[in-house]
């Protein structure tokens, strides 16, 4: 792993909310092409970690490096422009827009046409619109949402709303994809379709950081796993290594074995 520099490097990440330590001194890295899972009980700090990487929260201490540069002072939309995409755990879909339009928003990071080009109807704007539609159609197809494309997004069943978050994140062709519990609320077949999609993305060389509770899901997909509990890293390694780790067993069963 040392030969290739990591795409994402989180060093000493700490975040307090008042007296609560949501994260304490967390180190984590994601190598190019790696699928890295973050697991841990509820309240372990997984979503907080994602928000520090995406820029939705500011770290109390620690640094975040991406592609060889520090990004922890960049605004979230600038991080998106560099190729970091997030499907949040608890974010609603964009209301009053169709499924396709929702996904098209995800292409914002890789497109440029401004208001003037749009108002004047310049060819540049039209070309880019067509391009965005194509990107969105492909992302919808991959997420299995093509049949829903023209529906109002807020009328989708929960499972499809989760898939929509993934499609939106994919639409901008990210280099690093952060998925916060993408399979929660999905039923069996949808779940395995999502696992298939993630596997495919990994095959294409995308770097993925994944939070997921489903053990089978993690076992199937993750190259490496980092385990958080009460804001600290309590174990890391391959799935086979961490599943037998006493600290992990304690954290999940609650109390000493």
């Amino acid at each position: 792993m040392t030969a290739v520099p990591a795409l994402l490097t989180v060093t000493g990440a700490t975040r307090r909310f008042g007296g609560v330590h949501a994260l304490r001194d967390v180190d984590l890295d994601v190598a190019p092409g790696e699928t890295h899972a973050v697991i841990g009980p509820n309240g372990a700090g997984k979503s907080t970690l994602f928000k520090l990487i995406g820029g939705q929260l500011v770290a109390t201490a620690g640094t975040i490096g991406y592609d060889g540069q520090r990004i922890d002072r960049l605004a979230p939309h600038r991080r998106a422009r560099r190729g970091i995409a997030i499907a949040f755990q608890d974010s609603p879909v964009f209301g009053g827009m169709t499924v396709t339009e929702n996904v098209m928003v995800g292409a914002h990071a890789v497109t440029r046409a401004g208001p003037v080009a749009a108002v004047l109807g310049l060819p540049r704007h039209r070309r880019e619109e067509a391009e965005i539609r194509e990107l969105a159609a492909r992302a919808l197809d991959r997420a299995g949402l093509t049949a829903w494309a023209d529906r109002p997004a807020d009328a989708l069943p929960l499972g499809q709303q989760r898939a929509l978050q993934v499609a939106r994140a994919l639409c901008g062709g990210p280099r690093l994809l952060l998925l916060d519990e993408p399979a929660s609320g999905l039923r069996g077949p949808e779940r395995s379709a999502l696992a298939g999609l993630i596997e495919q993305l990994r095959g294409e060389g995308l770097s993925i950081l994944l939070v997921e509770h489903d053990v089978a899901f993690v076992a199937r997909l993750a190259d490496r796993v980092t385990v958080l509990d009460l804001g600290r890293v309590i174990a890391r390694g391959t799935f086979a290594e961490i599943r037998t780790d006493p600290a992990v067993i304690t954290a999940y069963l609650g109390g000493p074995p």
């Binding site: 939309h77 998106a80 609603p92 890789v110 401004g114 749009a118 939106r168």
Partner: peptide, 27 residues
């Protein structure tokens, strides 16, 4: 034209989902 454009989609998105819009690259 503004509302129907890329910028307009960004605007409509941030009206109901500011966090996700920003994370998608909407300034």
């Amino acid at each position: 034209r503004l509302v129907r454009s890329r910028v307009g989609r960004g605007l409509r998105a941030l009206a109901t989902g500011e966090t996700a819009a920003e994370a998608s690259g909407v300034p």
